[in-house]
Amino acid sequence: MLKVEEQQPVAFSSTLLASFDEIVMRYPVGKQKSALLPLLHLVQAEFGWTSVPAMDKVAEYLAIEPIEVYEVASFYSMYFLQPKGKYVLEVCRTGPCCLVGAEKIMSHIEGKLGVKEGEVTEDGLFSWRGVECLAACGYAPVLQIGPEYTFYENLTEQSVDELIDNLRKK
């Protein structure tokens, strides 16, 4: 497993802060806490996960308590509280996808990457995990890769191999 400094120091760039400012404008005065989920997505897209120092900074920016950020980040499934691979393959594991082979795809990915669900490959490139229904059940099996959440549909073992090989070459 990859070792990463758990307490990565974070600095928010002026571009990031500018997009924060733009998002906060969407809500009535005094309701800036509404920006919390969108802001955490931006943070994760920038740093790869939502670390405690990053969450503290978000709290400071929104003028709310750090615990208000932690409790939200831990409630929702999309925020990573631990470092992950550069590419996180998230495979749908819910009923309809399993009817057409999602479980086989997951064990294939596990074998191909050589790491268990949630772990990071030695080179820091990949993690994978099962997630719940991605609203693409008609094109199953499916997986998504953040931070843009690109979709890959009608997966086969071959298409998964190609996908991983292509990402490795990038």
């Binding site: 920006a35 919390l36 969108p38 997505h41 939200v72 929702y76 999309m78 229904c133």
Partner: peptide, 26 residues
């Protein structure tokens, strides 16, 4: 405006959705 959720089925329930839109747990 478009508001992204954070990944939680329960936020489809309308009052959980409103909580989430207010920046809270669903």
């Amino acid at each position: 405006y478009v508001q992204p959720g954070g990944g939680a089925y329960i936020c489809g329930e309308e009052t959980a959705l409103l909580e989430s839109l207010e920046g809270k747990r669903g």
